[in-house]
Write a protein that binds this DNA or RNA. Sequence first.
DNA 1: TCTTTTATTTGTAAAATGCAAGTATATATT
DNA 2: AATATATACTTGCATTTTACAAATAAAAGA
Lengths: 148, 148
Amino acid sequence: MENKRELFQILTRRFGILNKNCCAGDDIEISTVHSHILYEIDKQHIPTMQQIADTLAIDVTTFSRQIQTLIKMNLVSKSPSSDDKRFYVLTLTNEGHNMAQSVESSMNSYLNEVFSHMNEFEQETVLRSIKLLNNAMAKSSVCCTPLI
Amino acid sequence: MENKRELFQILTRRFGILNKNCCAGDDIEISTVHSHILYEIDKQHIPTMQQIADTLAIDVTTFSRQIQTLIKMNLVSKSPSSDDKRFYVLTLTNEGHNMAQSVESSMNSYLNEVFSHMNEFEQETVLRSIKLLNNAMAKSSVCCTPLI
DNA sequence: TCTTTTATTTGTAAAATGCAAGTATATATT
DNA sequence: AATATATACTTGCATTTTACAAATAAAAGA
């Protein structure tokens, strides 16, 4: 049987390509990394800089600059936390939220197209498997230990 | 049910993190992109520059420079094709082959660890699902059309 | 022979990255 | 309270990565 690595290598490479083309909004375009940042800010409840950087395994200093870019693009806003002024909390602007939605729906329609090449049963099995895999990774010591 | 995108987002992000830590050989360390290049040169039979660049969806000009780096690191060698001198064919050096092996075994042991958190049946199901998914992606019009 | 196509490289300029060192705020120690 | 230490984030570099446009070089077509 083919080894695991080959299967995953191909899968993630392809998903990466999907992700690359995902990120055109109404008028502006953003990078894959930026789309992940928007995604996580949307998902986590008023996160701090550190939280998102950790989740995405991005160096904080790099992340700091990425946020600066996203703020300039008017997609993200950053405000000092009231109880501890060392922290900054991140939120999406309306524009950022729209962009996140736009990426979300592009990705979902891409994935629906991909899934359309499988029958109902296969689709179910695949989704269940991805969940199993995500859970296994969450338990793993070699992967993603401090991550959500 | 959670949407597909979320499941895939998390999966591929985690796999990306695995990949990041994968690439330490005996003494030198390489980037994820470089490890993918070595992987593909090893897999494809005496490929040309263009072939690998296309497979990995990397811009050829960027790829040209990446190969230059890998040659300097003595992991790859490049020679003009005898029948058509516009082409250059790529091969791994012994050192490059060792590196590819080393990455391969790191990745497989990471993945084995991840899989150890599932039972036999789940493991089978997951592997079968990844294959299904790869086939579906290969048929897809939105993903990876010119790719293997 | 002359033009066009194909494979690859270089020029240049922008963006992404990450370490070391900085600032600013909070907590711990004395 | 004063000083030291820790934490969250930013900036200064210096390197690496990226990609468009233009160049080179070889093959194929007219």
